[in-house]
């Protein structure tokens, strides 16, 4: 792989790591491990930890995919590897 190709791949890995970091934080973090602590906070009638497990994480997942698609598109163009 040439230099620019390698730089592109590292940029991709960095982006994916960021996306998956948030992904793990909202589900395994807020939704499971931290849920008992967060349940002390009430948001709109929901205990907050419960909300993350049964509502919030799903909204974040959707946002993450579209953010990922968008940022990947930018990366593709920046490194000039986008589809014609």
């Amino acid at each position: 792989m040439d230099k620019s190709g390698q730089a592109y791949w590292y940029a991709v890995l960095k982006l994916v790591a960021g996306i998956l970091g948030v992904w793990a934080l909202v589900s395994y973090g807020f939704g499971i491990l931290l849920a008992p602590a967060l349940n002390n906070i009430m948001i709109g009638g929901y205990p907050f930890g419960f909300w993350w497990a049964q509502q919030g994480s799903m909204y974040v997942f959707i946002a993450l995919i579209f953010i990922y698609a968008r940022l990947m598109g930018n990366l593709d163009r920046k490194f000039d590897v986008h589809e014609e």
């Binding site: 992904w23 497990a53 799903m58 997942f61 990922y68």
Partner: peptide
């Protein structure tokens, strides 16, 4: 979920969170 309560959230997170993995790691 109705029987399990909060713990049933594992189905909700599990069956939607996989799409993030699919989009980032496999599909493209």
């Amino acid at each position: 979920i109705s029987n399990m309560g909060y713990g049933g959230g594992l189905f909700l997170m599990g069956w939607t969170g996989g799409y993030v993995l699919m989009a980032c790691l496999l599909a493209p």
